[in-house]
Design a protein around this nucleic acid. Structure first.
Lengths: 233, 233
DNA sequence: CAACAAAGTTAGTCAACTCTAACTCAGTTT
DNA sequence: AAACTGAGTTAGAGTTGACTAACTTTGTTG
């Protein structure tokens, strides 16, 4: 209840709204999608004019560069601000999972709410308490406090050849129902699957999890990323 | 990054600013101070006109009642909203102390930032994980999710008779430097002190903590509340 | 090439909060 | 009683971020 506690502790950060834009542009960049006004607006659930105006503001502030009418890139300042938000987000996810046994389909939404309110000091304490974790519960890499960061994705399960042994390294956190479903099938980060046949026409992909056969709809198998085990290629 | 995640999850709550006003009025009510426009403005670090306007709005919304020009009371709806914020705040403090060993002088500021961003679901998980705690690290009682709540303070150390054995039950969280100082003296919630003589003219109060004698300045001894042990009165 | 659709922008509003400056009103002082 | 003082309010304006409606611009397609 101290006066201005919010401003004091969190000073120097972009506004929550701006942080959301930066984070979204970063995510689009990592996944190779075009960061156009429209895709950004859609991802954030705002109107196109709102996104247009905000992007202009971010460009004026030197956080975003308009490459052409349909592509926005983060400047190095913008990227580092985005990485700070992403780092906070993923540390919070790891923290909630570790301390509250919160399931992986819930942590994302909570982190979405908390990421703008966690101070640098709290972030540092969480990081230390967890022993400087490198990945969140979905296998997303946690950017370091300083220095650069590699967001590279593994191969999608989608693309693994039949018969391969596939180790799950990372699962998209965007769809919490999908995460719940995967958990129910016994598929999580670190699971090892044996890839079976894919049925034609967008049918399910069959995989073996332990000694059970499971069907993964086409939407699901695209969310699961990992690596084909050695000598299996 | 889901659209409108904030609105969806936190829907139905007063705005963060409104929650701060309600919380402040509640705190002033508990401590017996007059909840005038000026005191509320001062506590929140806003100008008097801002507080005046906001209080009018809260009154229009049925959360606050203007008793007279210098007294604002919470309505029952306002009180229950305030209790929800206070509950969140204190649960967060307890959670941070328990999971991160965060010292008692830091948890308040962090909770101040987080209390508006913690969802009902997360609140419930924290409450359960801590085994439904009844008090935060400063000894402040955590209001129940439903039903009423007693904010009553114990006796200030200030008022304990010389020679009494005094058990610390609660320490004001407002002054974090004071909390650090008390911790350094070995005084925390649950400590037992033996009250010594008070020096005249606002001088320090001497207390025995374990086998050490400690001086508490007049500001400090007023922050420490507790109970004189049986048969000592 | 003309027409249409998709994407982006501009203009005008709105809502929630904040501020300062200037006022009113009530209760002292002198 | 006049004047001062403190508290509260009103008025006007700024900020941030969103919206809709109505453009323009661009690119595709008949």
């Amino acid at each position: 209840m101290a006066p201005n506690s919010a401003t004091r502790t969190l000073g120097g950060r972009p506004s929550p709204a701006a942080e959301d834009y930066l984070k979204t542009i970063f995510a689009l960049g990592s996944s190779g999608d075009a960061a156009s006004v429209s895709t950004i607006a859609t991802r954030l659930g705002v109107s196109r004019p709102s996104a247009s105006v905000m992007l202009k503001r971010l460009a004026d502030e030197g956080l975003v560069e308009r490459v052409d009418r349909h592509r926005h890139l983060l400047t190095s300042k913008g990227r580092s601000d985005a990485l700070r938000v992403v780092r906070r987000h993923r540390l919070i996810e790891a923290f909630l999972a570790a301390t509250l046994d919160m399931p992986w389909d819930e942590v994302h939404a909570e982190a979405e709410l908390l990421e703008h309110a966690v101070s640098d000091r709290l972030e540092a304490r969480i990081d230390a308490a967890l022993g400087h974790p490198t990945h969140d519960p979905h296998g997303d890499p946690i950017p370091p406090r300083q220095g650069d960061h590699d967001e590279a994705w593994h191969e999608p399960l989608d693309a693994a050849p039949p018969g391969a042994t596939f180790r799950v390294e990372r699962v998209s956190d965007r769809d919490s129902a999908a995460l719940r479903h995967l958990a129910a099938l016994g598929i999580t980060v670190g699971s090892t699957l044996v890839v079976g046949e894919r049925e034609p026409f967008g049918g399910p992909l069959w995989v073996r999890v332990g000694r059970r056969r499971r069907a993964l709809g086409p939407g699901l198998s695209r969310l699961v990323h990992g690596a084909v085990q050695e000598g299996q290629r």
